[in-house]
Write a protein that binds this DNA or RNA. Structure first.
Lengths: 190, 190
DNA sequence: ATTCCAATCTGGACACTGTCAAGCTGGTGG
DNA sequence: CCACCAGCTTGACAGTGTCCAGATTGGAAT
């Protein structure tokens, strides 16, 4: 039967539920996504999700992990495609900010403390966070930013710009321009 | 009657409800605060709040405005107490980050897009946001940061550091240290 | 091939929530 | 003295997360 959609046994309901929820995440914040609505979208009873996720929070965690993997991918390929270290750092930051603005609800889900407390993250989430921070650290070091607080500051910079732009406090273009001028000031020699 | 707490007519229920809700905000995120719970805490029926706030969102907006006013106060008095422009900028940023970490739920409420879309903010919220941005702009300019994207970048920096520290991705001390080294790099002459 | 099992899905139930509609209360202006 | 009306209350409805007990299935062991 493999993955036929209907019938008593679904094939891969977990995946289907996540897919449906991810689609909802494009249009509404995670807080407004109801488990029952996701179940409805997947054509199963309101209780079927409980056989694949412990909680509503379980589903949310899965969404956060998917989104984080997505974000990490974009940042990585952006830095990889850049010609020099400085451009790589700029491209990574741009990708980060752009993701926050273009997928605001997914971005929020990733960093929602009620979804994933960094003190005890999911087994899937922890390495993703580390990888993101690692990618940033590598790019920062290659560009010449080697002081202790530099990578945290850079993370904070792009995170804040992305968050505020996503919330509508200024434009994506403004955020990108601000990141650019900030990099100009931060990097040692022009 | 004035402000006696019980009885059919309450005196200033709106205030009492906001106070109760603010207390709850110290312990739990805004999303988990239920209107009925607030009503219970104020010893009124579950429907009394509707005579003072249009919605659940109405209460949330009031909380956000209060919190924003609080945040603005702290940033302002921090910058005002500093000896020189550079110290003022640093103190303002520190106050901002500290508020995010010490009152994470209030801070989140302020910037929650579902509570207050910056495109059409509350009549009370709009001037507060402008004032905060203005305070930052003044401090930045006085410290010598006069390029177009500078104030947005500074806002993004402290906002991101505060948010990430509040979410537990690093310590408050790490955030403050990062802000400090970033300022060192950003400011023209040492 | 038949039987059985464990995973999967279903329906019903409970407490809780936001919100609407209507009724009670008690101080204030006529 | 009375009628009014803002402030508060009770009641009801739909929607939600979650627990429970039953129904259904595909595949494994015999």
């Amino acid at each position: 039967m493999s993955s036929s959609k209907d019938g008593y046994h679904h094939g891969d309901l977990a995946r289907a539920l996540e897919d449906a929820a991810m689609q909802l995440l494009e249009r509404m914040p995670a807080a407004e996504i109801s488990l029952r609505e996701v179940a409805r979208a997947a054509n199963v009873s309101h209780n079927a999700p409980y056989h694949h996720f412990s909680d509503r929070l379980g589903l949310l965690k899965a969404l956060a992990e998917r989104s984080m993997a997505d974000l990490l991918d974009r940042v990585r390929s952006a830095t990889a495609a850049a010609p020099d270290p400085r451009a790589a750092l700029a491209a990574g930051g741009t990708a980060y900010i752009r993701y926050a603005v273009e997928h605001p609800h997914a971005f929020d889900a990733v960093y929602d403390p009620t979804v994933c407390v960094p003190g005890s993250p999911t087994a899937t989430m922890a390495p993703l966070i580390d990888a993101l921070e690692g990618a940033l650290a590598d790019a920062a070091l290659a560009a010449g930013l080697d002081r202790p607080g530099d990578v945290v500051a850079l993370w904070g910079l792009v995170h804040g710009l992305g968050t505020l732009a996503a919330a509508g406090h200024f434009t994506l273009d403004d955020a990108l321009a601000a990141a650019s001028t900030a990099l100009d000031r931060l990097l040692p020699a022009a």
